[in-house]
Design a protein around this nucleic acid. Structure first.
Length: 501
RNA sequence: GUCCCCAUCGUCCAGAGGCCCAGGACGCGGCCCUUUCAAGGCUGAAACCCGGGUUCGAAUCCCGGUGGGGACGCCA
C-alpha cells in the first residue's frame, strides 16, 4: 500500500488538511504501507518555499512522518512538481499524438464570456470545446507564428464514469457535465488535474485519500488514467471540516492552522488525537489513544461520510488530558515562549528551566493550553501588593483580616523559608493560634498577602513554589518580603492607581 | 443554474431491520471534593430533518421534499 499527502505550499497547514494527512499516515502505519509527501507547487504565483518549509515543520511537529518524498528521498522522485516538468511534457506529447488531447487557443476573455453566457442560460459553465476541431497542422502553424496555446484533454462524450469510493460507495458522473480540462498551461506548466494523475501513477500510489472537495475532479482523472492505459488507484474522499456555523472552517472562527494551535500551547498528540475523532471513532467507547494505537485500529471503511464541525471545547478537553500526562521537562521547555511573551523570562538559565519544570506542571494541571500557564503563575513572577490592594474587594477583605496579616508578618519574620507543604502548614497553624482564625478566614487573607490574588493554586503548592522561586529567580520576592510589602501597603492610604480610577 | 456528496442529542461518534421508549464523549445543569479559582469524581437534561413507500416490524432499505456542503478556473 502506498498513500500520499500532496499539499500545495501556498500558506500554513490548515487543520482540515492536517486531518487528511493524518488519515493517510494512520492508514500507512496501520497497514505497514508507505506514506509519501509530495509538494504540488505548480501554482507559481502563490507557492513559496517558506510555505513548504512551514508545512513540513508542522507535519513533523504533529508526528506525521513520511517515509518517502521531499526531504526523505525515494525511488520515485523528484517529489516537487516543479522539478518534474520534463516528465509531464513527455506524457503530454503522448496524449497529443493519440488524439486524446489538443491545443486550445481560446483567450481568457473568450472563456470568461463563455462562462457568463452559460450561467445566464442555465447551462453548466464548462468549456464548450471550440478548439476541438483545430487540426494538428493548423495548431502547429499558429504556435509557430507566436500564438499561445494550452493543452486540453478531450473528454469523451456521453459516458458514465463510475468509481467506488471507499468512504462514499459508488459515485457516478456523466461526461456531459465535464468540460475539457486544461492539462498544460500556455507557459508549459501542468495544471493540477494532469500533474496529480501523472504523479500518482508514476509514484505507484495505491490509495488516494483526499478531501471531498476533490470528488468532482475524480472522473476527469479517471478518464486520464484510461487515456494512458493505466489502472486507477483506489479513491477515498473524506468530508470537510466545518466551523460552528457549518460554513467552511475559516479565520473568523478563530485558529485554523496547525501553527496557530501550536503557538497557543496545544500539544501535538492532542491535536492529532482530536482530529482523528472527527469523522471516525476508534471504537469500544475509547477516544483518548496514542497515535500508534489509532493507526492499529484505523480502517478507511469506517470513516464517516458527513462533514464534521471543529469543536474547540472538545479539543481543549483532549489537550487537558495530554497536558496531565506530559513530562515536567517538556512542559517547562514548551512554556518558555509563553513566559517570554509575558516578559517574565528571557533566555532561561538551567536553574530557571529547572524551576519551571517544578512549577509549570502545577499550573498545567488546571489549564486548557500552555498559553494560559503564565497567567496562572503570575503570583510568582509578577507579585504586586499595591496592585492587589488597588482592588477594593481585596483591600476590604485585608482590612477586615488585619490581625491575620499582622500575625503572618510576624511569623514570617522569624521563620525559615517555607520550603515544603509541611513547613507552610506549620506556619499557618501558628498564625491560627495567634489570631483564632481558621478555615477560609485564615487561609484566604494569607492567599491575598502571599500571592496578591484572590484565587489560584492551592497554597500548599503555591507557597513552597514562591520560596523556591525567590531563591532562583531574582525578580521573585520571598514570602517574608511579600508579607512586609503587603502590610506596608495596607497601612498607607489607597494608592494612586485607585485615586485615578 | 447544472452536477455530485451529506443528513442520529448544541457538537463529535456508536448504531449496518427486531438487542433502541436509541448508547458513549465534549459542552451544559446539579451534587461531591475543597482554605479560593480551576482541575477531578458522580449524576441529570438533551437527538433518529420532513413526507411517502417496502416489511409482521425501520434510526437502519427505497423514492420524493427540505436543509447543509462541494464542484463547474491557464487554483489546488
Amino acid at each position: 500500500m502506498r498513500v500520499r499527502f500532496a499539499p500545495s505550499p501556498t500558506g500554513q497547514l490548515h487543520v482540515g488538511n492536517a486531518r487528511t494527512a493524518l488519515f493517510n499516515a494512520l492508514l500507512a502505519r496501520g497497514q505497514g504501507g508507505t506514506f509519501i509527501l509530495r509538494i504540488e507547487d505548480t501554482d507559481r504565483e502563490r507557492s513559496t518555499r517558506d510555505s513548504e518549509r512551514a508545512i513540513i515543520e508542522d507535519l513533523r511537529w504533529l508526528g506525521l512522518d513520511w517515509n518517502e518524498g521531499v526531504e526523505a528521498g525515494g525511488e520515485h522522485g523528484p517529489y516537487r512538481q516543479t522539478e518534474r516538468l520534463h516528465i509531464y511534457r513527455a506524457h503530454a506529447v503522448e496524449l497529443l499524438a493519440k488524439g486524446s488531447a489538443y491545443h486550445c487557443f481560446c483567450s481568457e476573455e473568450q472563456l470568461e464570456a463563455d462562462r457568463q453566457g452559460a450561467l445566464k442560460e442555465g447551462r453548466p459553465p464548462m468549456y464548450p470545446g471550440r478548439c476541438r476541431v483545430v487540426s494538428q497542422d493548423e495548431a502547429r502553424h499558429r504556435m509557430e507564428s507566436g500564438e499561445k496555446a494550452v493543452i486540453r484533454f478531450r473528454v469523451p462524450a456521453d459516458r458514465e464514469v463510475v468509481f467506488n469510493d471507499v468512504v462514499r460507495g459508488e459515485v457516478r458522473f456523466s461526461t456531459d457535465v465535464i468540460g475539457d480540462p486544461v492539462l498544460v498551461r500556455s507557459d508549459g506548466v501542468p495544471a493540477y488535474n494532469y500533474a496529480v494523475v501523472i504523479d500518482d501513477a508514476l509514484m505507484e500510489v495505491t490509495h488516494v485519500i483526499r478531501g471531498e472537495d476533490h470528488i468532482s475532479n475524480t472522473p476527469r482523472q479517471i478518464l486520464l488514467y484510461e487515456a494512458f492505459g493505466w489502472e486507477s488507484p483506489i479513491f477515498a474522499h473524506v468530508s470537510l471540516v466545518m466551523g460552528p456555523d457549518h460554513s467552511p472552517l475559516s479565520k473568523r472562527h478563530g485558529a485554523t492552522s496547525v501553527k496557530e494551535f501550536r503557538d497557543r500551547g496545544y500539544l501535538p498528540e492532542a491535536l492529532t488525537n482530536y482530529l482523528a475523532l472527527i469523522g471516525w471513532s476508534p471504537g469500544e467507547g475509547e477516544e483518548l489513544l496514542p497515535l500508534e494505537e489509532l493507526a492499529k485500529r484505523f480502517r478507511l471503511e469506517d470513516v464517516g461520510r458527513s462533514a464534521g464541525v471543529f469543536d474547540v471545547e472538545k479539543l481543549a478537553w483532549v489537550n487537558r488530558h495530554y497536558l496531565k500526562l506530559a513530562a515536567p521537562d517538556r512542559l517547562a521547555t514548551e512554556s518558555v515562549p509563553h513566559f517570554q511573551r509575558a516578559g517574565w523570562i528571557a533566555t532561561p538559565t538551567p536553574a530557571e528551566l529547572a524551576f519551571l519544570a517544578e512549577v509549570v506542571p502545577l499550573a498545567a494541571a488546571s489549564v486548557d493550553r500552555l498559553e494560559q500557564v503564565p497567567a496562572r503563575l503570575r503570583f510568582l513572577f509578577d507579585y504586586s501588593a499595591s496592585r492587589a490592594l488597588g482592588d477594593s474587594a481585596i483591600r476590604a477583605e485585608a482590612e477586615a483580616a488585619r490581625a491575620v496579616v499582622a500575625a503572618l508578618v510576624e511569623e514570617l519574620a522569624t521563620s525559615q523559608p517555607l520550603r515544603d507543604r509541611d513547613m507552610f502548614r506549620a506556619m499557618a497553624a501558628r498564625v491560627r493560634e495567634r489570631t483564632g482564625q481558621k478555615g477560609k478566614a485564615l487561609f484566604h487573607p494569607m492567599r491575598l498577602v502571599l500571592t496578591g490574588e484572590a484565587e489560584g493554586l492551592e497554597l500548599d503548592l503555591a507557597v513552597p513554589a514562591i520560596e523556591r522561586g525567590a531563591a532562583i529567580v531574582s525578580r521573585i520576592p520571598d514570602a517574608r518580603e511579600r508579607a512586609t510589602l503587603f502590610l506596608h501597603e495596607l497601612d498607607s492610604a489607597p494608592n494612586q492607581d485607585k485615586l485615578l480610577s
